[in-house]
């Protein structure tokens, strides 16, 4: 089952399933969120927003507002 990245927890191993159409979908794709990419939420800011995500070899932070456009599925080896 795919779910939106903004409701995922820290440490869950996730795989990008799709980017929802939005103003920033091409931007998110260019930042490395192509479908199949393995990602993980590293930590969240004190109010739970923004969140920091490990994308391959680097860490990207984004607001939950941006994260809602990233659809992910939990990896089986969780």
């Amino acid at each position: 089952m795919s779910q939106s990245l903004n409701i995922c927890k820290i440490g869950e191993k996730l795989r990008v399933s799709s980017i929802l159409p939005s103003e920033i979908s091409s931007k998110l794709l260019e930042m490395g969120f192509y479908s199949g990419k393995e990602i993980e939420i590293l930590y969240k800011a004190p109010f739970g927003d923004p969140i920091a995500i490990q994308v391959g070899d680097y860490v990207l932070s984004m607001r939950k507002n941006e994260a809602q456009y990233i659809e992910v599925i939990k990896s089986v080896n969780n």
């Binding site: 103003e23 920033i24 930042m31 923004p50 920091a52 680097y58 860490v59 990207l60 932070s61 984004m62």
Partner: peptide, 10 residues
């Protein structure tokens, strides 16, 4: 400009 917050944390 589109407003978004995407910030790399080095």
């Amino acid at each position: 400009e589109k407003s978004f917050f995407l910030l790399e944390i080095p």
